[in-house]
């Protein structure tokens, strides 16, 4: 157990899942910043991303890259649909935060059950993106899928940063996160920003789901644990800070990998959830402090 190669191996794999949690965590932040809503259906996007890609690939023989692209677009559209059907009506009625949470959680269940009915309860997996033997760094194997995850995460974060910094829509969303009323007075269509944030967040979740599926598996019920991991990442990084969320995700991934090595893989969710409770009780503002 104390074998350094083994520990290094575990940490490397933790880095991969950490990136995934980070992406999901950023998804939470995007919606939260635009609207103050915490979307408890975030996990549904992750599950749908992996599931749709798998279906397109296996059932319809679409090559991986187009399949992934189609899945991301479809899930983004579903994010907007969720916003239109569930979130917007509640938002217009000034629903309390609790009602909003309960409604999005119910939406999560609806998506989960619909998926179960549509494709059954069998766990599914995707082939690794490029089927080549792992790189050896000393005696530590680094799978090429991990490189895909790292590369794609870096790309997504760069794209997001550019979006928020240079595009009009991105700037408008940032204005919303600073002060929604002032943003509305400046002529920013706040509701459209809400819809956009759901689309963006759903696309992020789907991307995360597609990247992680080859190394794990996807099934109708993987969403909630992923959502909670993403939420933990967001809290650890200080809620509402996208970059913090990504770092929080990495930290969670490493902690979880350590827990798997020490206690066995069955307890990985318990480890993550316990980390959530520790942070909630001791340092709810996260390491960097919450954005607001």
């Amino acid at each position: 157990m104390a074998d350094p190669t083994y520990i290094a191996q575990v940490l490397v794999s933790g880095l991969g899942t950490g990136c995934i949690y980070g992406l999901i965590g950023i998804g939470f932040c995007v919606i939260y910043n635009a609207s103050g809503i915490v979307n408890f259906a975030q996990g549904a996007f992750v599950m749908l991303g992996g599931m749709l890609t798998q279906l397109l690939l296996m059932r319809y023989g679409v090559p991986l890259l187009p399949a992934a692209a189609v899945a991301i677009v479809v899930v983004a559209a579903m994010g907007m649909l969720l916003e239109r059907l569930v979130v917007r009506p509640l938002w217009d009625r000034n629903a309390t935060m609790f009602v909003m949470i309960l409604a999005t959680l119910a939406a999560q269940i609806v998506v989960e059950r619909a998926t179960l009915l549509a494709v059954g309860d069998q766990p599914r997996t995707l082939p690794v993106f490029t089927d080549v033997p792992p790189l050896m760094l000393g005696r530590v194997a680094i799978s090429v899928q991990l490189l895909w995850i790292l590369g794609a995460s870096a790309l997504v974060i760069a794209a997001l940063t550019a979006f928020f910094r240079y595009t009009l829509a991105g700037k408008a969303m940032r204005a919303c996160s600073i002060d929604r009323e002032a943003a509305a007075l400046q002529g920013i269509p706040v509701k459209r920003m809400l819809a956009l944030s759901f689309a963006l967040s759903a696309a992020l979740g789907a991307t995360a789901g597609i990247l992680i599926t080859p190394t794990q598996y996807t099934a109708f019920n993987v969403g909630v644990p992923f959502a909670i991991s993403g939420f933990i990442a967001a809290i650890v990084g200080g809620f509402g800070r996208p970059l913090g969320a990504f770092l929080g995700g990495l930290l969670l991934g490493l902690v979880q990998a350590g827990a798997i090595a020490a206690l066995g893989s069955g307890l990985k969710n318990v480890a993550a959830l316990s980390m959530l409770l520790v942070f909630l009780f001791l340092r709810p503002g996260g390491i960097l402090g919450a954005a607001k």
């Binding site: 909670i228 307890l267 959830l273 959530l276 409770l277 909630l280």
Partner: peptide, 23 residues
């Protein structure tokens, strides 16, 4: 410790407790 939390934190904290028990 949990009931000192508010809002989203309380919601996610209690949700986590339910899931931990399930796991």
């Amino acid at each position: 410790p949990t009931l000192r939390l508010k809002g989203h934190y309380l919601a996610m904290g209690t949700l986590a407790i339910g899931l931990i028990t399930y796991e």
